[in-house]
Every structure is written in structure tokens, then in C-alpha cells.
Design a protein around this nucleic acid. Structure first.
Length: 571
RNA sequence: CGGGGUGUAGCGCAGUCUGGUAGCGCGCACGGUUCGGGACCGUGGUGUCGGAGGUUCAAAUCCUCUCACCCCGACCA
């Protein structure tokens, strides 16, 4: 295509108040514009990138036998009421009424609708398995849209759903998706991890997330570099070293105004690890709960919430009211309320904790002897911990969730009565799975992972064009003729890498060379072909790889072959 | 939802403290000179100063309310 006919509004200045690199570059390079909080317009270049990604998604989904369909985004409330999510999801769902006053909502996702159609049409095990997918708009009234295109209120998602007759079938469909996702993200040029994840409101079974590491990411993931263990920090487990025996005499100690573990630890000259941090939380379902952690550890709130449901930390007033103790001096002994202690607290040594009395702590506490509790893993993994599988060292990285896979089981099919008759003539619920990928997040992650100070460096599989021809002197007949000739010839070449023709952009604008160079680097097409009077005098043109900035002069009559070679060499 | 911040030309900003009738750079239009890394000179157009109400002879500026957007946190199929 011709640059002069394409709408690519690049910006020289950096928009103020935003900080995600992908957000800045998408704006500066003319890929997107923002309509309102969490609502983005994809301009021609941005839309081309999304379509490149979608094409890869379609190809890989078709390879595992998935069939593309399209579902409404406006849903009747009854279906969401049937599964209960009409009630469990709160402000995040856009709701409205139609003219007759009927409750409706805008689809945040499509499990309900998929299970509904399955319930109507799938009657026999002979119709199973099925995998249906769509690339469709989702709407969520996000509390805080952020990071440009990373978290928006309206976005496109590739969502697929598997329907199987039994659990082995679900495993098969799940694994097929995992394999397809590996191919997809590899093809899109992303660095990514498949991590264990929290199923959240999707269900209670196995789930994984595909995470593209970048500082702009919203999630923390834990990676073991020796054995490959990878998990979202919300569910990650680790091993921490056991402590050497301690044998403190059981007695109260005066600790005036020393409340935090750190303060008391310094006051007594005893390592934080020999403390028990006692927290009071108020659970919506279970009321007050006392939570114990080793002094140097932090609470993983997600882990605790999975045990006791939604909870909040007690206020100073609540602590006095419920325990009769000021916060800071609460200890594990004596209270009648529910107690949960982290597994890292050893039962064979003595600890220090609050004495349940203002300005006093208690030493010599032996867990299991002086108090009992429900022993659970509620600790947040730290980088200095060891891998619980292999003992290897761990690293924690920020990452963007670009995809996820969930085993749903019968969570949606039972309430929506999606039953089929099995071989044995018995009626059984369909076993379901759901699998999502956010194309805009893939694009943003690709930019986060592939850019330099001049602009975007697209992985060539998802670049809006393959090659950009840059004639430098539009008033020089020879320059224009050779550029146009290359444009013609290159456009006719079949791109076996992508199974389509080479897509060429020619910057035919009457602009100064500097402007063209800057814009070309900003928008990030993998190969630049520079045609200019100066080098043309040697009967040569230049080929520049955007990624490495490596430039090569080649003679005009070998140009096409050399350009194609350079294109295949880059990545 | 809690905390912080910003709204002045298409973009980036100054002007607000101390009230006096709106400015700079870039971009844009036209003319000329330039032409291998966001050119230069000249000319020109551009604003309900986020909105509403109030104080005042006079409000971008002071007061009250409100809206939008951004950042941190909570939340996040």
C-alpha cells in the first residue's frame, strides 16, 4: 500500500501522563487512539496487526478441530441468572433493559451462551466432542482500565469452548488447547510462560495462564529456572529453609510500644524468623479468623481467601472488641475463634508472639502444644525461597496475561441442563472447558518485548507490513522509478513464511528523508528498503533490518532476491 | 471504592500563588529556499481557559459544586 493513502497519524511528542511503553508507542506510531477510559479505536495499522494475530489464531484453532461461530454480545438476563453469575458478578457487568423492561446484559464472556446452545442441540454422545470458538467483543465495566490496550472495558477476545462426554475427553481438549496456545504465542514472536493459575470465578478445577513477561504486566509470576515450575504468585508454592532449634523459656516479656515484628525483633535482638505474626481478619462467611505466619513471611491474600472466602483485615476497634487486645500485641494462644497457621511454622521449636496484653509479648511458644490451628499454605512466595519441586532457585517476574485455559467441568452445563445420552443410555452433563486469548494484549506484549528508543520492532509474523520501501528523493525520477519497480515486484512474491503474498508499504510521501526514517523506525516494519540518489549513483539500494539496524548495500539488479533473503533472515 | 494528580489551540506546555480581558514550541495553510535522520525564512488561521453557579467594575486566575482523564492501591471472566 501507499503511505500517502494510508492514515498513519504519527506523533513526535510523547503524550503526557501515560507510562506503559506499548501504550506510548501505539499512540505515537498511529496505531490506536483513545475514545474514553478503556475504549480504544484501532486505526489502519493497529487493525492490520490485530487481523494478523487473528489469522494466526484461526489457523491454529482450526488445526485442533475448532469451528468458528459467532454469538451475540447482548444477552438475556435469565441465562446468567441460571448459572448464578447474574448475582455473583457485581458492578463489572454492564446491565440494561430492553424496551419491554426485560433485564439484559452485555457479554463479559460466553460460557453461559455456549452452554445454552449446547443444551439445546447436543443430545447424544455421538455428537461429542465439539470445540466452538469465536473472535468476539467482550464488555466489562472495569474498575480501573489501564496500560492502554492492556485492560480495557471493551475488547476482542478469541474464546473457545470444548464439550466432552467424559473427563478424559476434557483432558484431551484442554491439552489440545495448551498445545495450540504454545504454537500461537511462538508464532506471534512472544516470550511467554505457561503458569499454574487460580481459576477465580470460572470454576474450581485446573487452569493455566499464558504469561508474557514485561515490566508493564499486571501479574507476578514465579518461575523455577531449573525444573520449569511456573505459577501465578496467587497460587505459587515454595520451600523455605527450616530453622535451627530454639529453646526459649516460656514467659512474658515487656515490650513497650513495640508492635510490628520488625520492632520487637530489633528490641529483643532475635531474628524475625523466630516470631509468629498473628493477624486478625474478618471473613464474610466465617466471621473473625486468627491467622498465623512466620515473622519473616507475608500473607498471600488469595490463598487465604480460597480457604475462608472474602475477608478484610480487622480494624483496631474490631481487635479490641473481638479479642480484647490492641493490634500489635495479639498472639495465637487462648482465643476461641477459628485459627489458620501457615505450614512454615515449625512445631518443634519455640517462637515469640503477642501476649494478648498491651506492651507484652510472649516467648517460648511451641506451636501445636500451646495452641493449635488449621495448618495450611497461606504464605506468599518470595524470590529467596526455593522451588518446592526441585529445590532450584526462583525468580519472580511481572507479566501480561495473554491467554488462559480453564477446565470447567459441569459448572455451566448442569445449571443450563446441557445433558446428553451416553452409550449406556444414561443422561449425563456435558463436560466443558473454556479457553481465551486477547489479541490486543498479544500486540501490546509484543511491543513491550520488542522495541527500542526509536519505536516498535514488530515480530515479522504480526507486523502490519512485511517490507517498507523508502524512496528518499521524490523529485528524482530514477529514485521513484526504481522504488516503484521494487514495490511492484516484491508485492507479487509469495511469502511462504506466512502462506500469503509479501505485503509492501511504499512511503511515497513528498517528505524529507529524515521524516521518513523517523516514521519508519517508529512504526516498526521489519525490513526497510532505502532508495536514494546518493547510493543509486553506485547503482545500489540499501536494505535495513529494523531489529538490528544492520544495513546492507546491494546492487539494483539483485535487489529483489536480497530483500527477500533479508526478510527471511529477520524474525 | 480509597489515595494522589491533571484539565488553557490538534499535540506538548507557560500563565493561576499576587484578578486587568490569553501566550510559547511543535503541527496546520500559503509562498520561497532546502532535501540521507523529525529543515529554514516569511505570512496566516486556530481557543465556549473541562462544565455550572457564585464573589467582583472586572475571573483562566478567588469560592462552591460537578464532570472527564491519568497514576498508585483495592478489584480484575
Amino acid at each position: 500500500m501507499r503511505y500517502s493513502q494510508l492514515f498513519i497519524p504519527t506523533m513526535r511528542e510523547v503524550p503526557s501522563g501515560i507510562n506503559a511503553i506499548s501504550h506510548i508507542l501505539m499512540l505515537r506510531a498511529g496505531y490506536v487512539r483513545q475514545l474514553a477510559a478503556g475504549l480504544f479505536i484501532f486505526l489502519p495499522l493497529g487493525w492490520r496487526v490485530l487481523n494478523k494475530i487473528n489469522l494466526i489464531l484461526k489457523e491454529e484453532m482450526e488445526k485442533i478441530g475448532a469451528q468458528e461461530i459467532s454469538m451475540p454480545i447482548l444477552h438475556p438476563a435469565e441465562i446468567w441468572q441460571a448459572t448464578g453469575r447474574w448475582y455473583t458478578i457485581k458492578e463489572e457487568m454492564f446491565r440494561l433493559k430492553d424496551r419491554t423492561g426485560r433485564d439484559m446484559c452485555l457479554g463479559m464472556t460466553h460460557e453461559e451462551i455456549m452452554a445454552w446452545i449446547a443444551s439445546k442441540e447436543i443430545k447424544s454422545y455421538r455428537q461429542l466432542p465439539q470445540i466452538w470458538y469465536q473472535i468476539q467483543t467482550k464488555l466489562r465495566d472495569e474498575a480501573r482500565p489501564r496500560g492502554g490496550v492492556l485492560r480495557t472495558r471493551e475488547f476482542i477476545m478469541k474464546d473457545s469452548y470444548s464439550f466432552d462426554a467424559d473427563w478424559e475427553g476434557l483432558d484431551r481438549s484442554y491439552n489440545l488447547h495448551a498445545e495450540a496456545y504454545h504454537r500461537i504465542f511462538t508464532r506471534c514472536g512472544l516470550k511467554y510462560y505457561q503458569v499454574e493459575s487460580d481459576p477465580g470465578i470460572m470454576g474450581d478445577l485446573e487452569s493455566h495462564e499464558f504469561m508474557a513477561p514485561t515490566p508493564a504486566g499486571e501479574d507476578d509470576i514465579v518461575i523455577c529456572e531449573s525444573c520449569g515450575y511456573a505459577a501465578n504468585i496467587e497460587v505459587a508454592k515454595s520451600e523455605i529453609s527450616t530453622l535451627l532449634p530454639s529453646n526459649l523459656e516460656y514467659k512474658e516479656i515487656y515490650t513497650p510500644n513495640k508492635k510490628s515484628v520488625k520492632e520487637v525483633s530489633e528490641f529483643l535482638g532475635l531474628n524475625e524468623k523466630y516470631f509468629i505474626k498473628t493477624l486478625l481478619v474478618i471473613s464474610e462467611k466465617n466471621g473473625p479468623v486468627l491467622v498465623m505466619l512466620r515473622g519473616d513471611q507475608e500473607l498471600n491474600e488469595k490463598k487465604l481467601a480460597r480457604i475462608i472466602g472474602e475477608f478484610s483485615f480487622a480494624t483496631p476497634e474490631q481487635s479490641l472488641e473481638i479479642l480484647g487486645v490492641e493490634l500489635g500485641f495479639v498472639g495465637p494462644i487462648g482465643h476461641k475463634i477459628k485459627k489458620i497457621a501457615d505450614l512454615s511454622i515449625q512445631k518443634d521449636i519455640t517462637y515469640v508472639s503477642g501476649a494478648n496484653k498491651k506492651d507484652y509479648h510472649l516467648q517460648g511458644i511451641i506451636p501445636g502444644v500451646h495452641f493449635d490451628a488449621q495448618w495450611m499454605d497461606i504464605r506468599k512466595v518470595k524470590e529467596e525461597d526455593k522451588c518446592y519441586k526441585c529445590g532450584g532457585s526462583l525468580k519472580i517476574e511481572k507479566a501480561i496475561e495473554v491467554g488462559n485455559i480453564f477446565k470447567l467441568g459441569t459448572k455451566y452445563t448442569e445449571p443450563l441442563h446441557a445433558y446428553f445420552l451416553d452409550k449406556d443410555g444414561k443422561e449425563k452433563p456435558i463436560i466443558m472447558g473454556s479457553y481465551g486469548i486477547g489479541p490486543a494484549r498479544v500486540a501490546a506484549a509484543a511491543i513491550e518485548q520488542n522495541h527500542d528508543s526509536d519505536g516498535i520492532i514488530w515480530p515479522k509474523s504480526i507486523a502490519p507490513f512485511d517490507i517498507e520501501i523508502i524512496p528518499l528523493n521524490m523529485d528524482d525520477e530514477k529514485t521513484v522509478n526504481i522504488a516503484e519497480e521494487l514495490y511492484e515486484k516484491l508485492g507479487e512474491i509469495y511469502n511462504s513464511f506466512a502462506d500469503r503474498h509479501i505485503e509492501v508499504l511504499i512511503d511515497d510521501r513528498d517528505e524529507r528523508p529524515g521524516v521518513k526514517f523517523k516514521d519508519a523506525d517508529l512504526i516498526g516494519i521489519p525490513i526497510q528498503v532505502i532508495v536514494g540518489k546518493k547510493v543509486l549513483n553506485e547503482n545500489k539500494i540499501e536494505i535495513k533490518k529494523r531489529r538490528t539496524k544492520e544495513t546492507k548495500k546491494v546492487s539494483v539488479n539483485k535487489a529483489v532476491v536480497e530483500i527477500i533473503n533479508a526478510y527471511y533472515e529477520t524474525y
